[in-house]
Write a protein that binds this DNA or RNA. Sequence first.
RNA 1: GGCUCCAUCAUCUAAUGGUUAGGAUUCAAGGUUUUCAUCCUUGCCAUAGGGGUUCAAAUCCCCUUGGAGUCACCA
Length: 467
Amino acid sequence: MVITRFAPSPTGFLHIGGLRTALFSYLWAKHNGGKFILRIEDTDQSRNNEDAAKAIIEAFRWLGLSHDGEIEYQSKRTDIYKRYIQKLLNEGKAYYCYMSKDELVSLKDEQISRKERPRYDGRYRDFNGMPPPGVEPVVRIKAPTNGTITVHDGIKGDVVFNVDDILDDFIIARSDGTPTYNFVVAIDDALMGINEVIRGDDHLSNTPKQIIIYDALGLKIPNFYHVPMIHNQNGKKLSKRDGATDVMEYKKEGYLPQALLNFLVRLGWSHGDQEIFTIQEMIEMFNPKDINKSASIYNTEKLDWLNAHYIKNMPNEHLKHLLEDYGIILTSNDKTEILLDTLKERAKTLQELAWQIKDILTQPTYENEKAFKKAFKGDAVDILTAFSNTLKSAPKPHLPVDFHIVMQSIVDEQGIGFGKLGQPLRMALLGKLSGPGLDSVMAVIGVDETINRISSAVSYAAQNDYA
RNA sequence: GGCUCCAUCAUCUAAUGGUUAGGAUUCAAGGUUUUCAUCCUUGCCAUAGGGGUUCAAAUCCCCUUGGAGUCACCA
């Protein structure tokens, strides 16, 4: 069984880069009928933050990504780590190091001044004398001192590290007894049966250390897939400082989970020329071997396009429900259909859609003088008045076509172009010169409100002598 | 600086060693629309540079250049 995981450290919100690796891991697990585990890496109490874990879970819920089993918290597994540290100690594969932090610092300074790579010199590796008093020791692992370590990576291929270039006897337990990152990651991945590790390639250089842990404990090394970073516009690793990287920010702005997921799955991964994927298709088609090797730049132009696409194709009933979060409560069913049918073609986000709905549903102000004058030049008032009178006398129009017929009759009667009526009417109804189809607008607000808005506009024109 | 990774349009990407280097987004133009948007059509735009290997290189090899990641008692 394939078991993957997403293992964030809870230092803040879930960001775009994390979400993408989570998505890849999720898809690969589901593709194989396996499990996707969520593990919170909170070993460092000083940076721990419960709210952050909640934020991640909330984001997952919004996106419909579900993890299997209970959420694992590393902070609750300290006994396990202690046991494995003790095991390594007992077997002579790890040892206490009594070097103080000051000593370590001065050693590093010396090495740097000699232009050597800073590294621990192994002075306590075979120590069995009296420990110096007053020093709480750290635990270091006996790492190999020569040879190479090869990471077999499903994306990058075999990556060979020369031990002498990168390693020393690194710390696996701090002087307060708490284990360090590379140690717990290896332990947890192994104990949780995770056999496919998909993570950012900023972890590639950690991997040899983790392999040493696996080897020391005789644990099975998983398959690794190191996914290239997502870069910001400056070409640097996307970080929380970059703005617009909080996943939940996209919810607020009115992006759909489907659109965000579709956008992210195509960042670094592709399946031929296909751009639009349902979740099912993603699960069917995703394979980490198709992840490309180079970093991509985060650019949301395509996200807007995808979001508009999904809004356009969303059933009105569903849209109506989602709009409630933006303060739009729609009651009348037939009018909701007309309203959403016409507006969902023109919105990039739910938020925009909500604004556009408000624009239609509220009486406009005519504060854009320039536009108003433009719309009302010539005999606009007469035309509007004629239109208004016809509306009053005609059998009550309901549907957009009914209103269209009335508009057509005025245009024919007066021998004018559609624009002669349309421009001032649009200004009267919406207070601007662009916007959705007028027949739909009138069908939504109804005959009475249409007549009201026309008369407001006409009297406004008279007051200001625009006519 | 050491180590490691990466390099196709502005952006996301496709291309068993053989394609006029394809698609998508953006942008531009035209059509549709009373307007704007949608939609449709068309267009612009790329194999970082230099050497090899080969009948043939975006693709394989080397060098250069450029970019990124990482080097903690952080994760």
